[in-house]
Simulated assay, not measured.
Amino acid sequence: MAARPYKIPESVLVVIHTPEREVLLIERADAPGTWQSVTGAKDYDGEPFDATAIREVAEETGIVVGSPAVPREALVDWNLRNVYEIYPAWRHRYAPGVIHNTEHVFGLTVPRGTPVVLAPREHLAWRWLPWREAADACFSFSNAEAILQLPRFLP
Results as ranks from 00 to 15, higher is better:
Arg21Cys: 04
Ala137Pro: 05
Glu27Gly: 08
Gly62Asn: 10
Arg81Gly: 02
Pro48Arg: 13
Ala95Arg: 14
Val12Pro: 01
Leu13Cys: 04
Ile16Asn: 00
Glu56Lys: 15
Tyr6Asp: 10
Thr114Phe: 00
Tyr44Phe: 14
Ala29Gln: 05
Arg55Cys: 13
Glu22Val: 02
Thr18Leu: 01
Ile8Val: 13
Pro9Asp: 03
Pro111Ser: 11
Ser142Phe: 15
Arg21Ile: 01
His92Arg: 14
Asp136Asn: 07
Tyr6Ala: 13
Ile8Arg: 03
Arg132Lys: 10
Gly66Asn: 08
Pro155Gly: 09
Arg93Met: 08
Pro96Cys: 13
Arg4Ile: 14
Thr61Ala: 02
Trp90Gly: 04
Val23Trp: 03
Ala125Cys: 05
Val38Pro: 00
Phe141Lys: 10
Arg81Leu: 04
Arg21Gln: 11
Leu154Met: 11
Ser37His: 03
Gly107Arg: 01
Thr34Cys: 08
Arg28Trp: 09
Gly46Cys: 12
Ile54Gly: 06
Ser142Met: 11
Val110Ala: 00
Thr52His: 12
Asn101Trp: 01
Phe141Trp: 10
Ala74Glu: 03
Ala69Trp: 14
Val83Glu: 07
Val83Ile: 07
Asp30Gly: 11
Arg55Asn: 13
Pro155Cys: 06
Leu150Asn: 07
Pro68Asn: 03
Asp30Phe: 15
Leu80Met: 06
Gly62Phe: 15
Phe141Ala: 09
Tyr44Ala: 09
Tyr6Gln: 10
Trp78Thr: 02
Val12Ile: 10
Trp90Asn: 10
Met1Gly: 14
Tyr44His: 13
Ala2Tyr: 15
Val14His: 00
Ala2Ser: 14
Gln36Phe: 09
Ala3Tyr: 10
Pro115Thr: 07
Gln149Glu: 09
Asn82Val: 05
His100Gly: 05
Pro96Ser: 13
Glu122Thr: 10
Thr61Tyr: 05
Thr114Ser: 04
Ala51Lys: 14
Leu13Ala: 02
Met1Tyr: 15
Glu10Met: 04
Arg91Lys: 12
His123Glu: 02
Trp35Glu: 00
Tyr87Val: 07
Asp77Ser: 13
Phe139Gln: 04
Glu47Arg: 07
Arg91Pro: 00
Ile99Glu: 10
Ala58Phe: 15
Leu75His: 06
Glu20Trp: 14
Val70Met: 02
Phe153Leu: 08
Gly66Thr: 12
Val57Gln: 02
Pro155Lys: 08
Asn143Arg: 07
Gln149Ala: 13
Glu47Lys: 06
His100Leu: 10
Arg93Lys: 15
Ser11Tyr: 05
His100Phe: 12
Ile54Arg: 15
Glu20Leu: 13
Glu85Lys: 12
Tyr6Asn: 09
Pro19Trp: 09
Ala29Thr: 03
Glu103Leu: 04
Trp126Ala: 06
